[in-house]
Design a protein around this nucleic acid. Structure first.
Length: 907
RNA sequence: GCCGCGGUGGUGGAAUUGGUAGACACGCUGGACUUAAAAUCCAGUGGUUGCAUAAACCGUGCCGGUUCAAUUCCGGCCCGCGGCACCA
C-alpha cells in the first residue's frame, strides 16, 4: 500500500472536526498561549500557495504548544470591509456583502484542506453588525474623550477611488489601492488624535523586545519625534509673530531669512502690494502640484519674496520672509528660520535667490585626498598621528586611495609631513581638497593649489565619492552646508562663541526661555489619522449632526448603526458617501434634544475593524461588552503574532493606538496588544516574480494538495528557507519533501531495543526541533527530522522511539503522523499526547573527532573520547605523521587546546 | 540622501559567546532495475593541479586590520532588498 494522502487527509480532517479536537476552552487551569495570524482579506481571487505560509507556521507552533500542555487559542476571521471588497463588488456587479460571503466560503474551504487547528466557533467578521457595533462603540468613546474630531484641513484625495485617504494609505506618493496620483482637497472629515499617543507609541516600543528590530525602527521613523525649540520672530512693522520649530537652535545666529509654507495663514496678511501678484500665482501653482510633483522637484527649489521682513530675535538683524513649497504646512509650525550655512535645503535656496550665508559653526576637521600607487605601511601609520586614515583600494589601475581626515590644530604639521614625504609641493603635487558636489576641479588648501600628476579628469574622481569639508581659512568659499552636529565650534554667535553645538543647544534654549523668545519643543512626523471615507462599504460613523447641538454621538443602546441597504453603492464623487442619498436613513432625531437632525454619512476606513479584532476572538459572542474584562485578563496579550511586514506602519501602529486607548478607559488589562511579532517572508513564483494572475504564475494550493497532499505542502513551506525571508516556489523542492514523507510512511526496520547511535540521533532531533520551532527556525527543524529519518532507515529503531518521532513530526505533517500513530496501536489522538522530552546525556557520543591544527590550518583529525586529557591529546598530535610533516622538526612556540574541539600548534 | 536588513557551491540554504565552511534539500553526472521511459534505489558532486578513493593550494561581495585561528570581531568600500524621503 502506497502513501494515499487523499484518503488519509480527508479521513482525519473529518474525524478531528467531529471530535471538536481544536475547540478552545476558557478554563483557566492551564497556562495560556494565544497565537494569532493576521486575518485575511477575503478577496475574489482565492488563496495562492504564499498565503498559508504564515498560517502553517502558527499551526505548527500551536500544535506543539498544545502537546506541551498549554491552553492554546488559535483563531481565524475575516477583515472584509474596505475598498478592495467594494471595488471588486462594483466590477462584478454584485452587492459587497454577497461577494464577501461567497469569498469567505471559498477561503474557508481552501484553508480547511490544509488541516489547521483553527477554532471556528470563535470566527469573527468585521462586517457583521454584532462585531462592528463595538468598533462604533470605541469610536464614540474616543469622541467623548475629544480624540475624534471634525476637521476641514485639506486632505489627501484619490480621484479614482473618490475618497479621502490617510497619509499611511500612500505608496510612493500614489494611492496604495489603485496607483493614481493623489490630490490635496479641502474636505470636512473625521480625524483621530493619534498624535496624543505619539510619545507612548514611541517609548513603549522599548518594551517590545520580541518584535523584529526592523519593525520597531520603521515605527520609530514613522512617528518621527524631533526635539528642539520653538522660536518667535517678530514681523517688522506688523503686530504679529511667526513661530518656527528648529532642531538646531545653536544655529539661530545664522538665520538669514525665513520661509513660510505657501498655505501658512500669515502669508496673505504680510505680503506687500508689489509682491502680491507673484505671491498669488505661486500659491496657485503650489496647490495644483500633486504631492509627487512637489517631492520630485526636490533639488529645484523655488519660492517668492513676500516683501516683508522679520527680526532675528537673537541679533536683531532684519531678515527677509519668503514663501516656498519646500516648507510643508503639515510639519512643525509650517514655517522655518533658514540657516543656509548649516542646512542643505536652505543653502540651495539661498544660492538660487542670492541670499546671505553666514556660517556659525566652524568644522574641527578638514579632509584631504591623497592618491598614491603604493603607500608604504609605515607611512600610513605615521599619517595616523594627524587624524583618521582610510585606505580604499578602488581600482586596480589606480592602486590605493588614502583618505586622510586631519584635525585642524595639527594641520601645519600635517602639511609639512605631506610635503616632506609624499607630495611635490608644486603645481604638480598630489594632494586634493574637494567638495562632494564636485564643483571644484582643483585643490584649495592654505593658499596652496595642487593638481594631479597624471591628469586624470576630475569626473573620474567624482564617481568614487570623494568627500568634503570646509577648510578653516576658506570659510568665504562655503561649498555646501556644514550640517554635522558632532563636529565643530560655534562662531559669529556672540556669547556662545567657542562652544560645541551639541552642548550649546540646552544653554541656548534656557536663554531663549529667559528672554521670552522661545522654548523647548517637540514635534512629530506622525499626523492625526484621517478616519473618514466617502465610500459605502465600511462601518457608519455613529454620529448625528444636530442643528442645535452640533455633532452628537448615537446613544450606545442604539448601536450598531447598521449599514443600510442602498441601490447604488458606487461612490458619488461629490465628496459625499453613497449613504447621503438615502433620505430615510439620513434623517433622524438628535439623541440629545430630539429635534430633526441628520446622520453622519461618512464611513470608517478598512483599518477600523482590524484595530481590535484579536480582542473579539477572546469573547466573540459577548452582547454587553467589547470583551469580558476577566477573560481578556487571562488570554491577553497575544503571545505571538505572525503576518506580513507591509503592516508595520499602519495596522500595527493603529492597533497599538486603539489598544492603549481601550486600556485608558479601562476596557482592557494591558498596555500593549502583541508581545511577540514575526514577519512572514513572501513566496514568489518560480520565475522570481510575485504570484499574480497578470503573470500567469499563480500556484493554487488546491492543486498542490490534490497531487502531493496537505502534509507535503506544509512540510515544504516550512523547509523552503528562513521563515521571514522571501523565497521562490520550487515544485522540485516540494517533491523532495513528499519523498521524505513517503520514507516515513514506508518505514519498517523495527528493532527491539535501540543502539547508542539511534538514541543519540533521536535525542539530538528532539532537542533541535523543540528549540527550532520555539525560535521559528522551521527549515532547520525539518532538516533535523530528515537527518533522523535517514539514520533510522539505515540502522533501524524501536517502535517507542518511532512513536515519539511521530509526535515531533505531527505539528508539521498532522495527518500522516496521526495515521501512523493510530496504525501503531494508539487509540487516542496524537495531539492529546505529551510532547517528548530530550535527554541531554543521551546526546553525548562515545568518541569525538578532534582537529589538529598547525599554524591555524587543519592538518589531521583524530578520534578520541570526549573527556580525554590535554596531555594525552598532545601526545597523539605530535605522534601524527601528517602533523610531523608540517612541524618540520621545528619547536612549537605555543599549543592551544579547546576541549572537545581542537588542538592548535603554533610554530 | 537618510535609516534598517542582507551578500556563503549550479540553486534554496546550514554553520556565528571566533574553533573541521558548505548540514539538509533541489539540480546535475554516472550506475542498477526496465524492451524503453517515468518512478525507485546506489554512488559522486565548491574550484584549481593531479591517474588518484594520494596530496597540495585557493575559496563565505571587495580592500585592509586584530588573532595560533575570521563567514563570525574591527575600519573602509561596493552591490542587492525593504522603509522613509524637502520632516526644518
Amino acid at each position: 500500500m502506497g502513501y494515499n494522502h487523499k484518503k488519509i487527509e480527508s479521513n482525519w480532517q473529518k474525524k478531528w472536526e467531529k471530535d471538536q479536537l481544536y475547540k478552545t476552552s476558557d478554563d483557566q487551569d492551564k497556562p495560556k498561549y494565544y497565537i494569532l495570524d493576521m486575518f485575511p482579506y477575503p478577496s475574489g481571487a482565492g488563496l495562492h500557495v504564499g498565503h498559508p505560509k504564515g498560517y502553517i507556521a502558527t499551526d505548527v507552533t500551536a500544535r506543539m504548544k498544545m502537546m506541551q500542555g498549554y491552553n492554546v487559542l488559535h483563531p481565524m476571521g475575516w477583515d472584509a470591509f474596505g475598498l478592495p471588497a467594494e471595488n471588486y463588488a462594483i466590477k462584478n456587479k454584485v452587492h459587497p456583502r454577497v461577494a464577501v460571503e461567497k469569498n469567505i466560503k471559498v477561503f474557508k474551504k481552501q484553508l480547511g484542506r490544509i488541516g489547521f487547528t483553527h477554532d471556528w466557533s470563535r470566527e469573527v467578521n468585521t462586517t457583521d453588525p454584532d462585531y462592528y457595533k463595538w468598533t462604533q462603540w470605541a469610536f464614540i468613546q474616543m469622541f467623548k474623550k475629544g480624540l475624534a474630531y471634525e476637521s476641514d484641513e485639506p486632505i489627501i484625495w484619490c480621484p479614482s477611488c473618490q475618497t479621502g485617504l490617510a497619509m499611511e494609505d500612500l505608496e510612493d506618493g500614489k494611492c496604495e489601492r489603485c496607483g493614481s496620483d493623489v490630490e490635496r482637497k479641502p474636505l470636512r472629515q473625521w480625524v483621530l488624535k493619534i498624535t496624543d499617543y505619539a510619545d507612548r507609541l514611541l517609548f513603549d516600543l522599548d518594551s517590545l523586545d520580541k518584535w523584529p528590530d526592523s519593525i520597531r525602527e520603521m515605527q520609530k521613523n514613522w512617528i518621527g519625534r524631533s526635539e528642539g525649540a520653538k522660536v518667535k520672530f517678530e514681523v517688522r512693522n506688523w503686530k504679529s509673530e511667526i513661530e518656527v520649530f528648529t532642531t538646531r537652535p545653536d544655529t539661530l545666529f545664522g538665520a538669514t531669512f525665513m520661509v513660510l509654507s505657501p498655505e501658512h495663514e500669515l502669508v496673505n496678511k504680510i505680503t506687500t502690494k508689489e509682491n502680491e501678484a507673484a505671491m498669488i500665482k505661486y500659491q496657485e501653482e503650489a496647490s495644483k502640484k500633486s504631492d509627487l510633483e512637489r517631492t520630485e522637484l526636490q533639488k529645484d527649489k523655488s519660492g517668492v519674496f513676500t516683501g516683508a521682513y522679520a527680526i532675528n530675535p537673537v541679533n536683531k538683524k532684519e531678515i527677509p520672509i519668503w514663501i516656498a513649497d519646500y516648507v510643508l504646512a503639515s510639519y512643525g509650525t509650517g514655517a522655518i528660520m533658514a540657516v543656509p550655512a548649516h542646512d542643505q535645503r536652505d543653502y540651495d535656496f539661498a544660492k538660487k535667490y542670492k541670499l546671505d550665508i553666514v556660517p556659525v559653526v566652524l568644522p574641527d576637521k578638514a579632509s584631504y585626498l591623497v592618491i598614491e600607487k603604493s603607500l608604504p605601511q609605515s607611512l600610513v601609520k605615521d599619517l595616523q598621528k594627524y587624524g583618521k586614515v582610510n585606505v580604499e583600494k578602488i581600482d586596480k589601475d589606480w592602486g590605493g586611495f588614502y583618505r586622510v581626515e586631519v584635525e585642524l590644530d595639527k594641520e601645519p604639521e600635517f602639511m609639512k609631513f605631506m610635503e616632506d614625504n609624499l607630495l611635490e609641493s608644486s603645481d604638480d603635487g598630489g594632494a586634493w581638497y574637494t567638495d562632494s558636489m564636485g564643483t571644484t576641479d582643483h585643490a584649495i588648501f592654505s593658499g596652496k593649489t595642487f593638481s594631479i600628476k597624471d591628469k586624470k579628469s576630475f569626473e573620474e574622481f567624482k564617481k568614487y565619492g570623494i568627500s568634503l569639508s570646509i577648510p578653516k581659512d576658506q570659510l568665504d568659499i562655503v561649498l555646501e552646508a556644514f550640517t554635522d552636529i558632532d563636529n565643530g565650534t560655534m562662531i559669529n554667535s556672540q556669547q556662545f562663541d567657542g562652544q560645541k553645538p551639541k552642548e550649546a543647544i540646552k544653554k541656548i534654549i534656557d536663554w531663549l526661555e529667559k528672554e521670552g523668545i522661545g522654548e523647548k519643543a517637540v514635534t512629530y512626523r506622525l499626523q492625526d489619522w484621517v478616519f473618514s471615507r466617502q465610500r459605502y462599504w465600511g462601518e457608519p460613523i455613529p454620529i448625528v449632526h444636530c442643528p442645535k447641538c452640533g455633532a452628537v454621538p448615537v446613544d450606545e443602546k442604539d448601536l450598531p448603526v447598521v449599514l443600510p441597504e442602498v441601490k447604488n453603492y458606487e461612490p458619488s464623487g461629490t465628496g459625499e458617501s453613497p449613504l447621503a442619498g438615502i433620505d430615510d436613513w439620513v434623517n433622524t432625531q438628535c439623541p440629545k434634544c430630539g429635534v430633526d437632525a441628520k446622520r453622519e454619512t461618512n464611513t470608517m476606513p478598512q483599518w477600523a475593524g482590524s484595530n481590535w479584532y484579536y480582542l473579539r476572538y477572546i469573547d466573540p459572542d459577548n452582547k454587553d461588552a467589547l470583551v469580558d474584562y476577566e477573560k481578556e485578563k487571562y488570554w491577553s496579550p497575544v503571545d505571538f503574532y505572525v503576518g506580513g511586514a507591509e503592516h508595520a506602519t499602519r495596522h500595527l501602529i493603529y492597533s497599538r493606538f486603539w489598544h492603549k486607548f481601550l486600556f485608558d478607559i479601562g476596557a482592557v488589562n494591558y498596555q500593549e496588544p502583541f508581545t511577540r511579532l514575526q514577519n512572514v517572508g513572501l513566496i514568489m513564483a518560480e520565475d522570481g516574480r510575485k504570484m499574480s494572475k497578470r503573470w500567469g504564475n499563480v500556484i493554487n494550493p488546491d492543486d498542490i494538495i490534490d497531487e502531493y497532499g496537505a502534509d507535503s505542502l506544509r512540510v515544504y513551506e516550512m523547509f523552503m528557507g528562513p521563515f521571514d525571508q522571501a523565497v521562490n516556489w520550487d515544485t522540485n523542492g516540494l517533491r523532495g519533501t513528499r519523498k521524505f514523507l513517503e520514507k516515513i510512511f514506508k518505514f519498517d526496520k523495527w528493532q527491539d531495543g535501540d543502539s547508542k547511535e539511534a538514541k543519540t540521533v533521536y535525542h539530538q532531533m528532539v532537542k533541535k526541533v523543540t528549540n527550532d520551532v520555539e525560535n521559528l527556525r522551521f527549515n532547520t527543524a525539518v532538516s533535523a527530522m530528515m537527518i533522523f529519518v535517514n539514520k533510522i532507515v539505515e540502522i533501524g529503531c524501536s517502535k517507542e522511539i518511532f512513536q515519539n518521532f511521530l509526535k515531533v513530526l505531527s505539528p508539521f505533517a498532522p495527518h500522516l503522523a496521526e495515521e501512523l500513530w493510530v496504525k501503531s496501536g494508539k487509540d487516542e489522538s496524537i495531539f492529546l499526547s505529551k510532547w517528548p522530552e530530550y535527554d541531554e546525556s543521551q546526546i553525548q557520543v562515545d568518541t569525538i573527532q578532534l582537529v589538529i591544527q598547525v599554524n591555524g590550518k587543519v592538518r589531521d583529525k583524530i578520534q578520541v573520547e570526549p573527556e580525554i586529557a590535554e596531555a594525552e591529546v598532545k601526545k597523539l598530535a605530535l605522534a601524527s605523521e601528517k602533523v610531523q610533516k608540517f612541524l618540520e622538526g621545528k619547536e612549537s612556540k605555543k599549543i592551544i587546546y579547546v576541549k572537545g574541539k581542537l588542538l592548535s600548534i603554533v610554530v
